[in-house]
Amino acid sequence: MPEPPAKPTPLQLFLGFLYIGGLAFGGAVAWARHVLIEDRRWLSEREYAELIGLAQVLPGPNVGNLAVIYGRRCAGLAGAAAALGGFVLVPTAVVLGLVALWQEFGQNPWVAAFMAGVAPAAAGLALGAAIKSGIRLRPPPEQILAIIAIALAVVIWRVPLLWVVAVAGPVCVALSVRRALRA
């Protein structure tokens, strides 16, 4: 095993996460894994898995959380700010640029027609992501019930997210922990 390099400085963190954010089309998690483990060699596979596991339990973008946690560990507040800032800089500039373009050209009938087709596809992305997770993770029966209940509550009764998280959160976590204890 080669000796792991010294902890990255805030500037190195900024550049590393800038690279992750700028190229993360689709999934940032897989790309972050590649950059942090294979490209920069800042983390081992195991360290990455532990950090991303924690980052996924917390609200907010997974890799953004990872940037904060890892950045803090390496270089305190400057490290956390540099890593998170690097991660979101390019994507934020790109999306805001897209909005500017849309505001400029959205009324153009060709653009409007194109976007009329992209919008239902984006809805399909959300639906497909839900189905894919459902297939991959094979949730136990109580979780399938919870998924259906949450989806219905939100679609039909427009239950605010705060209530979903406040009520379903503790229940689902408790059920999951109980199942883990029994296994």
């Binding site: 997770s133 976590v173 922990v177």
Partner: peptide, 9 residues
């Protein structure tokens, strides 16, 4: 435990 919330949403 967060899975069903994320998937349902």
């Amino acid at each position: 435990g967060l899975v069903p919330i994320a998937v349902g949403l």
